[in-house]
Amino acid sequence: MVVKQVEIINQTGLHARPASDFVMMAKKYQSKITICKEDGEPVNAKSIVRLLAEGIGPGTKVELCAEGDDEAEAVEALEALIASGFGE
């Protein structure tokens, strides 16, 4: 299992297009992937509705967690996507 702390830096947060991009990226990997806010419950990163319902705004610190054959690659790719600010 790979776990990584990251901060959401783009202006919109994980809403609208960035949320879609995030889910789409997560789906490229076989591993079970979750995203979790501080003091929150982990939610399935491959579920757009769950992700939107979390309301992850800009500046939120989240924990990415992946478990499976490609867990390291998955976390690395998602972290890079978040760090890129989703091209905003």
């Binding site: 879609s20 491959k46 757009i48 769950r50």
Partner: peptide
Amino acid sequence: QEILEDEEL
């Protein structure tokens, strides 16, 4: 379409 691909749903 995105909703219809929501894994958890």
